[in-house]
Design a protein around this nucleic acid. Structure first.
Lengths: 191, 191
DNA sequence: TACGAAACCTACCGCTCTACAGGTAGCGGG
DNA sequence: CCCGCTACCTGTAGAGCGGTAGGTTTCGTA
């Protein structure tokens, strides 16, 4: 092994896989998962469709890699989240429509029968709701308006984030996603 | 023309078209629009795929009919809506997962490029936001918490409804959609 | 009763899709 | 220097897709 090399074989391979996943994110954003063909993903990284299958043996395997990428992305311990960081996250998201579009499209598809991402989203939402409840409790304790508990508020928080994304993706001019989200947070701050 | 007949030709034809649209709603709920094949819709009403094309010359034409059906469904004048009726609507929706699933799947797909329902949803949301602002103003005037205007609150209201639907579709056991929605409305009632 | 339109059907076209099979070139390690 | 693995390729199977062409039956109406 020559350590001077920019990359050894394994690193090269992993870089290639990462490229493919990135391309898949793009294509899914444009066409959804069902509409995303392996060939179009392959083309984007300069491979044939069969060349791509060398890295991911099936289309579902590629989707799994895409979802794992996302999990890695927002893996932040509960204790580090605060409500104002959520607002920043939404603001940050508003600058990256591509990612939002990818996962909004996937979420929409996932409610259909036998969709390969359905289980993933179901578990993810259970996790995120629990996480948001923790964040809310840390911020407000039990002093939420109307006697709401953090556990009952968490689904609302998640729903607002997702719902705003769809409205914003369809018509960014008309919907101020970060502003609307802050409005919602202000609603929770009123005691 | 024999008036004693159960249906004349035109009525029979319209009934058939309605059957087809109903079947299309089901199949779209199960597979999304891209995943819904004309053949599978046709089979459900006892037709061949080509027989279906006699009623709707293209797949997009069928989608248009599906979307028109929905418009007709919730065509209620603004003046007749009240906030408590919204809560009832959500409760009613919770008993008809099929319809919710159809349009949640369509909404998700519609954010992808060149989707035939994209324009529909964009315009629909603009309309619904305006309508909700009217409803909110009728109910609360300008006395919303935190100095929020009805126009700024409307996107939140819509987002909560949509976002809750996804969580509920994925995991109805864990998400009390009507309850959560009432929680949100209570949040608006606090002054 | 005869005509014309509506309501289907069979046959088929051309395309796209995922996936498998099997080959080959190049490079790293012994 | 050669072996073997990785990294691709071509070819193709096999199914499904939307849509066209063109027939035939059925049925209301004049």
């Amino acid at each position: 092994m020559s350590y001077g090399d920019a990359m050894n074989t394994r690193a090269r391979s992993e870089e290639r896989r990462a490229e493919i996943v990135r391309a898949a994110l793009e294509v899914i954003a444009e066409r959804g998962y069902r509409g995303a063909s392996l060939a179009s993903v392959a083309e984007r990284v300069g491979l044939t469709q069969q060349g791509l299958l060398h890295y991911f043996p099936t289309k579902d395997a590629l989707l799994v890699a895409v979802l794992e990428e996302r999990d890695q992305w927002d893996a932040v311990p509960d204790t580090q989240w605060r409500v104002d960081l959520l607002a920043s996250l939404v603001e940050y998201n508003a600058m990256r429509p591509g990612i939002i579009q990818t996962f909004s499209a996937l979420l929409g598809e996932s409610v259909t029968e036998g969709h390969p991402a359905r289980e993933y989203f179901t578990e993810r939402y259970a996790r995120v709701r629990a996480s948001m409840a923790t964040v809310l409790r840390a911020e407000y304790g039990e002093r939420l308006p109307n006697g709401l508990t953090p556990e009952r508020t968490a689904p609302l928080l998640v729903a607002v984030m997702d719902g705003l994304q769809y409205q914003w993706l369809l018509d960014p001019e008309s919907v101020d996603m970060p502003g609307a989200f802050r409005d919602f947070l202000a609603l929770l701050g009123e005691t």
